[in-house]
Write a protein that binds this DNA or RNA. Structure first.
Lengths: 132, 132
DNA sequence: TTTAATGCAAACAATTTGCAGTAGA
DNA sequence: TCTACTGCAAATTGTTTGCATTAAA
């Protein structure tokens, strides 16, 4: 059995994720963590984030050419994302408003642990700008 | 207006994508393209793939730490993906079997151009192996 | 002829990893 | 004590870019 230790670094990373509402990437988490604990390395931030994702505490938003962004899963606030192709902004979409996808169409024996649903498109602001 | 030219390289990339059913990444596309057209560079493959994604002809599957995988959009075969966390295998999930997500919960004025739906989990084979 | 597309190699950026030292349990 | 975790720097890996050349239109 793998033994998980509670370290100051780990707590700091979790606190930053719980506090911030803006889907930060690893570098941004690192910067914020350093305000409290200046010696923390970027490598440790990555290692901690990986562990949190493995534990299912945090979810990721992945886009080619951009750094992976991390989103803390708050109890009872399950949500998905709407990503603007133009400006890259990410909006939260409450999952409660969406229908549950049935597992019927999945490959036989596939165990779903997580559903990633993203709406790609153009946000109101960018749509406005493009009308020029 | 941007002028798009029909080159041998571009045709080769498209043909490889249309032929393969296994969600290849850029390097794999490159290898396959070279079987027909040995001089094609990886850079050109990337540029072509980017263009195809921009044109909406091809969709991507993005996972941190792994190469982006490309999936040709066949008419009338709209589908989503089930990704195995353990072995990385990607299965197709026909979209017809899934309910249409209502745009009601989206941010005001957000124009959806594409929906990315991924089921993360463990496939039957890997689940079997883990029972040891 | 005009200029988009190419090949090549160098540059980049995000992420991972090896290792010796630090500190939870 | 024991070994997971850390900081640091170097190494990987995937992807992008500059530039001189080639080839569609």
């Amino acid at each position: 059995m793998t033994m998980v230790r509670q370290t100051r670094q780990r707590s700091a990373v979790i606190e930053v994720l719980q506090t911030s509402r803006d889907h930060p990437d690893a570098a941004q988490v690192h910067t914020q963590v350093r305000e409290k604990l200046p010696s923390v390395s970027l490598g440790t931030v990555y290692r901690t984030l990986d562990a949190l994702v493995r534990d299912g505490v945090v979810m990721t938003i992945e886009r080619t050419g951009q750094a992976t962004r991390y989103d803390y899963k708050r109890a009872g606030e399950h949500h998905h994302h709407a990503v603007c192709r133009a400006c890259g902004a990410i909006f939260d979409v409450p999952a409660a408003a969406l229908p549950q996808p049935p597992a019927a169409a999945l490959p036989a024996g596939f165990q779903v642990t997580d559903v990633h649903l993203e709406f790609m498109g153009v946000c109101a602001g960018c749509a406005e700008k493009n009308r020029a």
